[in-house]
Design a protein around this nucleic acid. Structure first.
Length: 550
RNA sequence: GACCCGCUGGUCAAGUGGUCAAGACGUCGCCCUCUCACGGCGGAAUCAGGGGUUCGACUCCCCUGCGGGUUACCA
């Protein structure tokens, strides 16, 4: 009976009963196969690739099953909180195509299972904490930080596991109700601890959505439920929330695997069904020959903003993430190049349980394939928008003639075998900068194999015979004759057969023209480039190079 | 230290007792070709190690090693 008394003592202001909340947040009226998932970031202001990786899994699982995906802000640690972080998270995920159905949003909150910020749910946590106290499953602990530290060193010295459990859980057993009452009267600070019913000898098993059967020893730690300031710990808060918000699948990082016994025990203590936990793996990188977890401090490529600022298309990042998220996605994509990724049947059991290396080469390849499927004007709009945000001064130059930019981006991309050399904004700009006088630079030198006098002769003859209205074959026939006239083979094969008879072949000649026109020896189809550049720029570039050579 | 998770080519991986151990990226070579790109063909390259169980182990069990995580009134 004194549990009841203690509960009243600790939570005098709590009037609602657990059953009230159960009624307030009833089972969702969804199809039995519908999944309810959530993203529960803490608002530290930093959102990384790992967050997006998990969010994409959450999103797919919920939406492909006609379920619900919601955003819950887990702000129980005010020390780490950054103002405006929630909005930043929403905006960043939104950019990469992740939409929430429910929870915290730009304009506040929406949904019937809120509030969705843990800091607004104190009464709810206290109600269930009170219930645990009432049932003898939680108790106040007055041990100070110093006492706990002291105890921990004793445990270490004795070779015992550290923590607040069994014999070491002093406040669990030694405190009488009178003791507690007088300490409370003196306003002595305390935390509320869980009275763990576990035993270290016993194991429990459960099925992880990703890892399958898991067997772990029961939790025996009397973990903290409510901190001194009355705010719940993650352990307690997420259990209450996931139940009341009727979450069916809890996708989270593998760093939570170790505390799974705590969470399962809490669900049992509250007589609730836990969600299907799905513990994802961490993203790592290779450094000095060893695998290392990707860290936000040292690895800029961890930040989502990194990809945004470089101008990776959100669809490319999503596509890459899908390939590492589900091992059969790539195969599916190969068979269905045109389908939206939402047509893919995503499953948790195809997710990897071993730590994977982040592979920028793969991302780039996926990005090439993705951009190849985008039509020119969409790509153009994307590039303009990206540049506008991250490179305003360059954006102005591009935006002056969007039609030209569209043509540039469309070069050689409309055949059965389109070019796939566009990867991300920054790279694309570098790729096409020769179209703009402001960015034109002599990147490559003339080939050594072509004498200086020949360079000049070629360019002079080319300019003299240049006709913007030539079609592609006429134009190239001119180049062939130009090559021959200057002692170069009209066809590379002729040169290969008799290298001694020629100075080089038509390829060398067009390289000279390329250098003059674009400052580089490699480029897409020269004729098409000239068509886009226009007669004026083409002739001007040829002429100024001729001047230089003279 | 203890506990937990993981370990197939350089990378992502398929595989669930019997396979010449898929595929993709990367890499190398060849072909196509005015360069680049695209595409085509081909090559090199993998079951962490050791014990079991079994007629037979990448697959099951144990040990070791390596990597990661947890061990907070952070999440």
């Amino acid at each position: 009976m004194h549990h009841e008394h203690l509960a009243d003592l600790l939570f005098p202001d709590i009037t609602k009963l657990p059953s009230d909340y159960e009624a307030l947040y009833p089972e969702r009226r969804l199809a039995p196969t519908a999944l309810v998932t959530r993203l529960g970031p803490s608002p530290t202001g930093f959102i990384h690739l790992g967050n997006l990786y998990g969010a994409l899994a959450d999103e797919r699982l919920a939406h492909q099953s006609d379920g619900v995906f919601f955003l819950r802000i887990e702000d129980t640690d005010s020390k780490r909180e950054v103002a405006g972080a929630a909005e930043a998270i929403i905006e960043a995920l939104n950019y990469f195509g992740i939409q929430f159905d429910e929870g915290v949003c730009q304009t506040g909150e929406r949904g019937d299972y809120g509030p969705y910020r843990q800091s607004d749910r104190t009464d709810i946590y206290h109600c269930f904490a009170r219930d645990l106290v009432r049932r003898g499953l939680a108790y106040p602990c007055f041990c100070s930080e110093a006492e706990l530290a002291n105890q921990r060193s004793k445990q270490e010295a004795a070779g015992d596991n550290p923590g607040y459990y069994g014999e070491w859980a002093l406040c669990r057993t030694t405190l009488s109700i009178d003791d507690i009452e007088s300490r409370l009267a003196k306003r002595q600070p305390y935390v509320l601890r869980f009275r763990s019913p576990g035993s270290a000898e016993k194991n429990f098993t459960l099925t992880d959505g990703i890892r399958g059967e898991l067997s772990m020893p029961e939790n025996i730690q009397d973990i903290v439920l409510l901190k001194q300031n009355g705010v719940p710990t993650y352990h307690f808060a997420h259990v209450v929330d996931d139940h009341l918000m009727r979450t069916t699948h809890g996708i989270r990082g593998e760093e939570w695997l170790s505390s799974l016994p705590i969470h399962i025990q809490l669900f049992q203590a509250l007589s609730w069904q836990p969600p299907v936990y799905c513990h994802t793996t961490v993203l790592m990188k290779m450094e000095d020959g060893v695998r290392r977890k990707l860290s936000k401090r040292n690895d800029p490529e961890m930040a989502l903003s990194y990809y945004r600022s470089l101008g990776y298309h959100p669809a490319a990042v999503r596509e890459y993430l899908m390939t590492i998220l589900n091992s059969n996605y790539e195969e599916w994509r190969l068979a269905n190049p045109e389908l939206p990724l939402t047509d893919f049947a995503f499953t948790t059991d195809k997710m990897s349980s071993s730590g994977m290396l982040f592979d920028i080469d793969k991302l780039n390849d996926v990005s090439k394939e993705t951009l190849a499927r985008l039509n020119d004007s969409v790509l153009c709009d994307f590039l303009l928008e990206w540049a506008g945000q991250w490179q305003p001064e360059r954006a102005n130059i591009l935006a002056a003639d969007p039609a030209k930019l569209t043509r540039i981006l469309g070069m050689d991309r409309h055949s059965e075998k389109p070019r796939k050399d566009l990867i991300y904004g920054e790279q694309i700009l570098e790729h096409i900068d020769y179209f703009y006088d402001e960015w034109f630079v002599q990147r490559d030198a003339f080939p050594e194999t072509v004498q200086e006098t020949d360079r000049l002769a070629i360019l002079e003859a080319y300019l003299a015979g240049y006709d913007q209205t030539d079609d592609r074959t006429t134009w190239f026939d001119k180049i062939r004759s130009l090559a021959e006239a200057n002692g170069f083979a009209a066809r590379p094969k002729d040169y290969k057969k008799n290298p001694d008879q020629y100075k080089g072949h038509v390829g060398d000649v067009s390289t000279v023209i390329r250098i003059a026109l674009m400052g580089r020896s490699n480029s897409p189809d020269l004729w098409e480039i000239q068509q886009i550049m226009g007669e004026d720029m083409t002739k001007r570039r040829l002429y100024s190079t001729i001047q230089l050579l003279r």
